[in-house]
Design a protein around this nucleic acid. Structure first.
Lengths: 331, 331
DNA sequence: GACGTCTGTGCATACGCATACAGTCGTCGT
DNA sequence: ACGACGACTGTATGCGTATGCACAGACGTC
């Protein structure tokens, strides 16, 4: 391994001068900088991240805490998040929050992470409080936990849901059902609340029997659809907590031979790339998913340089994208 | 931040003893180990990965070199790869191999990575040679580059392709087309070669005009299908380089109103979770995708402990999974 | 009882880099 | 011509951990 000392020797300067030259320190003469850069290039030297991290007391590594990487939603977050972090000179480390492992803050410290992006937080999770107590910078992505203030980037369902309901009402839907997300997630709770309130404005309400809750995953959609369908044919329009759930519902519908939207209309939330496939054409509440992920990267990096700043909460708007899974209600 | 020195003070021992006690060094008495563990627990101490990495001269971080994270294939690799690495006490760092950035070995060194998983290598890539020259342990995942020997985990298309062709021939297909992967990837080349040779055994051959090549992505499948379809209706069976390409083809078919498999049958390769959806039901050549990813994790970790060992090449078998995208040829 | 052996622990140091501080040299002003 | 000042650069040190080495004490052997 070639170190800054080797570069120093070749350039005929001291090791600290190499360090300063390569970080473009103003008190190093241009001629020295040039010499050092040439020597570094000749030796194929690049700064050792470990040494630097130990010296400056913090790394440039950001952890993404994920529950299940199989979930398409998170899979779609990783790309833009990684790109933005890389652009900002940081790297992305994946951390699974699984039972049986050490507590999150300890793991963050052990991994030498500078900050963390929380994308799976439940409102009753103790992780945010622990991270705060240990002074670990973190950001909520697509979630919040009211008990602990922190930077957050979320989505406002209002506009999108309003457009969905307007369209549904115009088509004549009255028996509307829903598979909402978990009650202990801010996302699940907020979306449910907005749906109910917008329906209420139209004089509509969700029947108790047409409402289910479950994790934001494929199985929830599959099982949810089947459960609702067995109950006297189910609602004519099914609103899902997110696209992954909606895709699960479409899957169950296809499997059961239930035509969508002729028998049952389905609406999602997130507008995943998959939802745009011609085979799927899921009508859904959309927002700029990539931008949301990127914004979380920016927030967490900004937090590193200014730990004392007030928490920022960035909210992105939504709109309805009508495709092929919403139609007139069955007779 | 709580350091091993703090633990040492509380436990009434020296810092090195803490280090030894926590790594379960045999020359530390059980009573001391207990004392140290209690002190560590009380202070919420966990070993600082940066300090350890600097001291032992290598980190426990493995880089996954990925071209585009948006690609479903890679998205499906990340989960199992990460889990296995975590199980082995390592962490996963994502690295994008994009133009305009520093050469890979420099970046690996700069990030302080212990090893690398290459999943996007082309046979003519200079990256493997560079990594070898710099002594960076690496593993080919789902690819190889013959010029540089290294651990690899790949898939043998033979059995799966044979079953596909048998089924196709039994159904009466004679005009078979293909959208193969890039010629400069081992995966693309091998699959093409096996398809051609198995067809040949059946006295069949691919017509020049029914064969396309392109990157293993969605757009290749979309555009490929359209191109072939315009040419006198295209082949009756379309074999695709992988599932992502096949999904793109299905997308284009759905968009063009071409019924699958009534007009054109489509076959993929990889058996992604998406291919199993009831909306998709893609007939495909399957193998244990998760296990392939996990094996690459095991190989790279094993390589760390024994850099001198002979390169191992693990090959997984394939089989055909018939679903709904292959049927009898149109009249 | 002296010596060798083994066990358990502390001391010193190294890993690669960054940075506070001290020092050198040249330049300018008076 | 001398002192002051600024521009560079070197020296010393610290970050947290691991490990070679020395050392103290316990124990067994003759």
């Amino acid at each position: 391994m070639v170190t800054s000392r080797d570069v120093a020797r070749l350039a005929g300067v001291s090791q600290p001068t190499v360090s300063r030259a390569l970080t473009d320190h103003p008190r190093v003469s241009d001629s020295t900088k040039r010499k050092v850069r040439e020597a570094a290039l000749a030796l194929g030297y690049s700064t050792n991240a470990i040494g630097r991290a130990l010296s400056v007391g913090r790394s440039n590594r950001i952890g993404l805490v994920v529950a299940d990487l199989e979930n398409q939603f998170y899979a779609n977050m990783i790309g833009p998040l990684h790109h933005e972090l890389e652009r900002l000179g940081h790297e992305l480390v994946l951390i699974t929050e699984s039972a049986g492992t050490a507590p999150l803050p300890e793991r963050v410290a052990a991994h030498g992470l500078a900050g963390v992006v929380l994308s799976t937080t439940t409102v009753d999770s103790i992780q945010p409080a622990r991270l705060r107590d240990r002074g670990v910078p973190f950001v909520y992505l697509n979630r919040t936990a009211p008990s602990v203030a922190a930077d957050a980037v979320t989505v406002d369902p209002e506009q999108g849901v309003r457009e969905v309901v307007d369209a549904a009402v115009a088509l004549g839907h009255t028996r509307i059902g829903a598979i909402f997300g978990p009650r202990n997630t801010s996302t699940g709770e907020l979306r449910e609340q907005v749906v109910r309130s917008v329906l209420d404005e139209h004089g509509l309400a969700l029947a108790q029997r047409d409402v289910l809750h479950g994790p934001f995953d494929f199985a929830t959609g599959r099982e949810g659809f089947r459960t609702l369908h067995e109950r006297a044919g189910g609602p004519t329009l099914l609103m899902c907590g997110n696209d992954v759930v909606a895709l699960g519902a479409l899957d169950a519908a296809a499997e059961a031979g239930v035509p969508v939207p002729e028998h049952t209309s389905v609406v999602g939330f997130d507008d995943l790339p998959t939802s745009r496939w011609a085979l799927v054409r899921l009508s859904t509440v959309a927002y700029d998913l990539d931008e949301v992920a990127r914004e979380s990267a920016r927030l967490v990096v900004a937090r590193l340089t200014d730990p004392g700043a007030a928490a920022r909460h960035v909210v992105y708007p939504t709109h309805y994208v009508a495709r092929s899974t919403v139609g007139a209600p069955r007779a």
